[in-house]
C-alpha cells in the first residue's frame, strides 16, 4: 500500500503545475488544459482518500468532477471560439476593451 502522503504530494504537484500554467500562459486553450490538471489533482485526492477511508464517496465524487470538468471545457471552448471570432486570437491577455 502506497502511503497516503505520496498521493497528496503528487496531487499537490499536479495542482501546482496547473496553477503555474494558468498564471503564466496566455493561450486560452493552454489555460483550459491547466484547469483540467487542477481538477484532476483533486480527483487523485478523491480516489486516494477514498481508498484510505474505505468508503466510495470519493470515487463517486471523482466521477462528478470528471463530468463537470468535461462540461466546463465544452462551455469554455465555446466561449473561446466566440472570442476568436471577435478578436481573431485566443490570447487571453488581448481583449482589453474594458480596462479599469
Amino acid at each position: 500500500m502506497v502511503p497516503i502522503e505520496y498521493y497528496l504530494v503528487l496531487s499537490a504537484a499536479v495542482f501546482s503545475i496547473g496553477l503555474y500554467g494558468l498564471l503564466t500562459r496566455e493561450n486560452a486553450l493552454l489555460f483550459l488544459m491547466s484547469v483540467e490538471l487542477m481538477l484532476n489533482a483533486a480527483n487523485i485526492n478523491f480516489v486516494a482518500f477514498s481508498v484510505q477511508w474505505g468508503n466510495l464517496t470519493g470515487q463517486v465524487m471523482s466521477l462528478f468532477v470528471m463530468g463537470l470538468a468535461a462540461a466546463e471545457v465544452a462551455v469554455g471552448i465555446g466561449i473561446i471560439l466566440v472570442l476568436y471570432r471577435n478578436f481573431n486570437d485566443v490570447d487571453v491577455t488581448l481583449p482589453q476593451s474594458m480596462r479599469w
Binding site: L63, M66, G67, A70, A71, V73, A74
Partner: peptide, 8 residues
C-alpha cells in the same frame, strides 16, 4: 463530450 461523460 457531454454525452460521453453521462455514460460514465
Amino acid at each position: 463530450v457531454v454525452f460521453d461523460i453521462e455514460t460514465v
